[in-house]
Design a protein around this nucleic acid. Sequence first.
DNA 1: TATAAAAA
Length: 545
Amino acid sequence: NPYQAAFDLPGWGFYVADRIAQHLGFPADAPSRSRACMLYVLEMAANEGHTAVEKPQLENKMSELFQIETEAFDAAFQKMVTEGDLVCRTVDGFENDLVYLGHLFEAERRIAAHVDRLLKAPLPVSRFDRQALIQEVIENLAIEPSAQQAGILEAILQHRMAIITGGPGTGKTTLVRAVCTLYKRLGKSVFLAAPTGRAARRLAEVTGREARTIHRMLLYDPDQEGFQKSEKDPLDADVVIVDEASMVDVVLMRHLLDAVSTKSRVVLVGDRFQLPSVGPGNVLSDLIDAGAIPVFELTEIFRQAAESPIVLNAHRVRAGQMPVMEPKTDPDELQEFYIIEQASAESAARQIVEMVASRIPDTFGYDPIRDIQVLTPMHKGIVGTIALNQALQQALNPQSPGIEVFGTTFRIRDKVMHLRNNHQKEVYNGDIGIVEDFDKRHQKILVRYDDRPVPYEKEEIQELTPAYAITVHKSQGSEYPAVILPLMGIHYPMLQRNLLYTALTRGKRLVILIGTQQAIRAAVENNRASNRLSTLKAMLADLKA
DNA sequence: TATAAAAA
Ligand SMILES: Nc1ncnc2c1ncn2[C@@H]1O[C@H](COP(=O)(O)OP(=O)(O)OP(=O)(O)O)[C@@H](O)[C@H]1O
């Protein structure tokens, strides 16, 4: 069965393989072919973020791409539904029947069931004087919470499940610190987690407590391709708090809630207008829309001044309008937001390097390594992280002694990020440090994380990447004095509104957008996150009824 | 119509 192998081919690889198989005379109506094609169409939809497809659309695709028509379609469809590969349902709010991959249906169904289970479980009556306790916690915080934050802090206590939302820089993560402290003060254990390593690291920095990726918290086992934590072995925490929840897909949320016992509480924190999950679903957005879980929203922005052009442009982008530069009154006056047009990727890359190395330090006084962060949509390409890191290193740190590992050089003074959890060394994906020393004789380097030096043997250096430029995905949750964001035609597959919104709200005092008008427009106009087809909201409504 | 994350 050639379709067994072909199915592993990514994207259009399957389509091409099918054409070849057809050309070689493999029967077009073979059941194995129909089955593989059906899975392919649904996988492609999942790739675009959908958890299900309307049945007529599935039929159209099967006909268009593979000329599999009614009879063959029905035969394959029935068999797959019977065997559990597919689930077909009539769902409120959808004109046509929906077809799901079995595991995505199961993920959404279980999330809804878990939310229902947690919301129905009564909370024990608290014997504490809540007001006095909250007052005490607030007085001991490094950052004094706003009235809005303090109000949510108190309200959160009264719910087994809650959502904290609000725009970028409104202090959601900062509020988590207070929530943590309060629960600790009540003698409750708190687990903190985030979908990306970098966001987990940032959460740990803001709260001063351990925070892990959701995968690490659930003890992901790559051999089993599954999680050790589950209903049978739930998370041993009174409170589980997940930050940057917009990036959690349906499958991960299912496993997370599988592992939350009815004795625990859950707080989801995130902003649905920032990046959606890489995998299918729109979990946070659906949960907010469903209205079953209490939602607390922060509105006051702390990261930038309210009248900052960064904030103004973030609002424009969120509303689907092009970002704009303020008209200059005085030619020498410095701005907070710049849009610089560059037609080619090469010239954009050159200008980014020049800005980081000299223009921004000279005119704004920012330190290239500490204060300026280049964010880019992709890893590959001339304006991807890999090439930009090379070029930036060449400009910022060309001379220091260093070591080359698989084509990447690490020199003393380089800013680096650790990528692969290393439990012995206690360094994890998302940790950012500076190369402090290089031992030429033993081919070792020393990386300093805050105040902790960590030695790397030569074979371990591949767990690092230079971090002058990182992806927008990894930057979600973090903030930097100055941000440079290239948006070019070659980033096309990544250009979407949420990505631009997330990237430019990372900057505290300076944001420079470099690219083509076309690419910026493509990003602003592409609101595909909100076009994801998902049914979690409908399933929750169903349970309520 | 290929890209972003997670894990080793
Ligand atoms: N009550 C406050 N007073 C002063 N500054 C605050 C307050 N709350 C938060 N901040 C500051 O605002 C900035 C943004 O806060 P934070 O990172 O918590 O926002 P966020 O809502 O989590 O953002 P994002 O959506 O980007 O993750 C931080 O520099 C933080 O120190």
